[in-house]
Nucleic acid binder design. Sequence first.
DNA 1: TTGTAGGCGTTATCAT
DNA 2: ATGATAACGCCTACAA
Lengths: 335, 335
Amino acid sequence: MVNKGNIRLIDIAGKLNITVNTASKALRGKPGVSDETRKAVKKLAEELGYVPNSLAKGLQSGQTFTVAIIFDVLINPYFMIMADKIHQKLKTLGYDTMIFAGEDGKLEINTLKTLLSRRVDGIITFLEPSDDVNSILYNTRIPTVLIGRKNINLNISTISTDDYKGSYEVGKLFITNGAKNIGYIGIPEDIECSKRRLSGLMQSMIDHGVAYNDANFRFMKTPQIADELNELIKNKVDAIFIFNDMLLLEAYIILKDQGIKVPDDIMLAGFDNIQEELPNPLKITTVASDKTKIIETAVNLLFNHINNKEVYEYQHVEFDVELIVGETTKSLISS
Amino acid sequence: MVNKGNIRLIDIAGKLNITVNTASKALRGKPGVSDETRKAVKKLAEELGYVPNSLAKGLQSGQTFTVAIIFDVLINPYFMIMADKIHQKLKTLGYDTMIFAGEDGKLEINTLKTLLSRRVDGIITFLEPSDDVNSILYNTRIPTVLIGRKNINLNISTISTDDYKGSYEVGKLFITNGAKNIGYIGIPEDIECSKRRLSGLMQSMIDHGVAYNDANFRFMKTPQIADELNELIKNKVDAIFIFNDMLLLEAYIILKDQGIKVPDDIMLAGFDNIQEELPNPLKITTVASDKTKIIETAVNLLFNHINNKEVYEYQHVEFDVELIVGETTKSLISS
DNA sequence: TTGTAGGCGTTATCAT
DNA sequence: ATGATAACGCCTACAA
């Protein structure tokens, strides 16, 4: 089947005895078309339900008005919130959104090839690019912004939060509220910010004179938090800083099932403040940042790159954080 | 700028002194190319990082290997869960995913035009199409599946859950546990399944000899549940069936803030069982269905349509539901 | 086995 | 103001 019932410019032109060229210009408000012709074209296009073929347009112009978002799993309130904000913002700019899951927590070559093949105009990724991808991104100058995972070794723009400060504050809060044996559960160690959050926590413990036990600082090897959590329970920690709020919720449920009380037996703190956008019956103690502003900045940065492809100067923007005290940590003890 | 640094078939062909045709066939494993040539082409393509231009491919073939998902807001665990499952499934089939937000809770003409323009191969929508869109979908035979919102007046395939039965069961549970004054909060009334869920609840009350008060059956006019909820609180209901789990969580928080105890003062039940995929500290009483199977069926149905465009026979599939009893309803009273 | 020609739908350029 | 032509990159059909 040749023309699957889609109306083309040539169909309009044919019925009006003009050329596609004229029809094209008429519809796009370009000069050089008489008012009369323009009206006739627009009217007929409307009647026939003409919709321009964006593939042809994209092939011709090299622009697809498409941005790709890369994450690992969408079933993570944080990604979902951010994806929604990005999608909304892009829509106002006339861009559509594709979603892709990376592999092994990275934006790797397979995914990138799809993006290249589809000629997306830009990439917003929540996953660090693998090394080979990083160099391709750099060489091809395809506009890319990495959100949430600062890594100054990468040749791309990044928007991150002040992991170090946030983690430091969490440590301080734990200690102020009586914690003596603090644990940490992060995502795999090769993710820069997972390490950074630990280092903030450790410095906080050092500065506040609380001894730390390396065995209580753990990086997940699987997507499940249970193993690492059980290890910490065995070690009788009284507070755990968890990489993000979703993992915290998983931990909370496991603790609840074991009859361990939060925050009385164990205090918990997370990262992301997902409860800001998502109803959550448990008020989490967490590190927050201005997600809307982050997305705003990320998209602006992306479009800077898109509109100035010759000057590929990547930037690293870091956002301030704020500690939100919820029900998963004790209130100040005045004993 | 003409060729933005992207390698094309002609680049490969040129360096090898063959034609694009041969290069094309070589890369796609088509017969009629000598082993020697094929190897050389593949090697060079690999070295040069050749990636086919999917726009050109799509323009030529009329296939884009793209499916669009339509929802209203992504910040809804249910959509997120479903979107993730769809995306995963599509990926295994070699298709990529675009996401679109409808307007006013419908898949309306603006969004549809974008989909037509992009020549997506199929549409999976969580929103009912508006009337004009429905007829276009029917006329153009663009493969579409509507999930979660059965409406037999639509000319498209739908996958839904047994709203009536689920709601009936909820009513029964409420009543068994002592509810005398039951309320309902649904999304706007023009959404079929919002009405259907109410009717199941009402029938249940009738069958079990519990009087109902129309003033306690409410449909939201804004995205916020607070107004309707406060009305029910005023009316001193002792149980509320809420359209879905996310709204239930919002309601729970509002009740908690007002010092109203769940389930002691008011029982709550929702729909979707989002806690199956998402960690949730509060175990919700909710109506569940097999989401993975639903998505599996939806995607299969979609590809039936895609692969048999001549026979456009839409189907309505309804999935069974199961009542999950959580902490938001009382346990059986034996008084 | 390899090459040539035409077309997918649109836009830009250069005529007329 | 309008038309003709070429190009975007690829694939199919047919020819050599």
